[in-house]
Amino acid sequence: MIEGTEYKITVSDDSKALCSAYAEGRAVIGLWDRKKEGQSLSPASYLVESVEDIDDGFLEKVVRRRFGLPLQIKRTDRLTIREFIEEDSVQIPHEADGGKNGEIFSHPDSLRDYIRCQYGFYEYGVWALAENETGRLVGKAGIFPMELSGLEELMPYIKENDTPVELGYHIFTSFRKKGYGLEACKAIITYAGEEISPRIYARIQEDNQPSLRLIKSLGFTLTARTCSESGQGLCLYEWNLP
């Protein structure tokens, strides 16, 4: 049961059974046997080796992925941190400091693709920040794979054998100076440290004093400073799970 609706889930080691259940509109889980060669468990997106590996949280995730229901990541005193839904695009303002990929979230088509590809593959990403009382979006924040293309000078400061992820955030202009950024990011790094990676990075422009203050208050430590060809300084910060 999710939000008052009952969903049926089929667990099977047989592809035909999984295909039939999926065609009937069910969520499906493949039962994988590591000793069995050439086993096909399509169209299952999730596999387990034993039914004992399945708990309520796992079932809910499978159902939400199957039917496009957003996962709730964390709930704080004032905010619900959740996955985006297509309808959120109308609440995203066009702001210059929304990041180079900010426009993705303000168009239904690109947001739909982001939800499908980012959440569907990584199971994490940039999330919506909604006020608990009103449901209004106040910004976006989350964890995403760190893009190092063009920033090779930072590579010596990334831990060896690390698959780096970084924290990003953007509070919409009309909701700033209310502490939403700190509140959301505290909850996000707590969640991400346990569920995604015990090490999180953040890149901040050296002249972005509000973001520098925020990142320091979250317990990030300065790892490196670099300088672009334009002379603009970039700071690399690192957080580790205590």
Rank of each mutant, 00 (worst) to 15 (best):
S149V: 10
P156I: 00
T163K: 13
R64V: 01
G30L: 01
S50H: 11
K35Y: 10
R116Y: 12
L47P: 03
A130V: 12
N208I: 10
P43H: 04
E49R: 10
L47M: 12
D162E: 11
F121K: 15
E52V: 07
G125P: 07
E37T: 12
C19L: 15
A130G: 08
A187E: 12
T134G: 12
F175Q: 11
R65M: 13
F172G: 03
I81V: 14
S40H: 08
Y157N: 04
T173S: 15
I85Y: 11
F67M: 07
L111V: 02
F175V: 07
P145C: 07
V51D: 06
D56I: 08
I171P: 06
T134M: 10
A130W: 08
Y114A: 00
S230R: 12
E103K: 11
G139P: 05
E83I: 12
T5P: 04
L212H: 02
K140S: 05
V126Q: 06
R112Y: 06
V138W: 02
E194D: 11
P43S: 07
A27L: 00
F84N: 01
G219S: 06
V126P: 01
N161F: 12
V90H: 09
I85Q: 13
T226E: 06
Y191E: 09
G38L: 09
E160C: 13
C185E: 06
M146I: 05
D14M: 13
G179W: 08
G179R: 08
E123N: 15
H107Q: 14
L31P: 01
E238W: 02
I143R: 05
S45T: 15
V11P: 05
A141H: 00
D13S: 10
Y169Q: 01
D33S: 13
R176S: 00
G142C: 07
L234W: 00
T76C: 08
F220G: 02
A27Y: 01
I29C: 07
M155F: 12
E95L: 07
T10L: 06
A202L: 02
F84P: 09
D55K: 04
L182A: 14
E24C: 08
G142L: 01
I204H: 00
S89Q: 14
I92R: 01
P108M: 04
V48L: 09
E133A: 14
M155A: 14
L222F: 02
D88P: 09
N240G: 05
M146G: 06
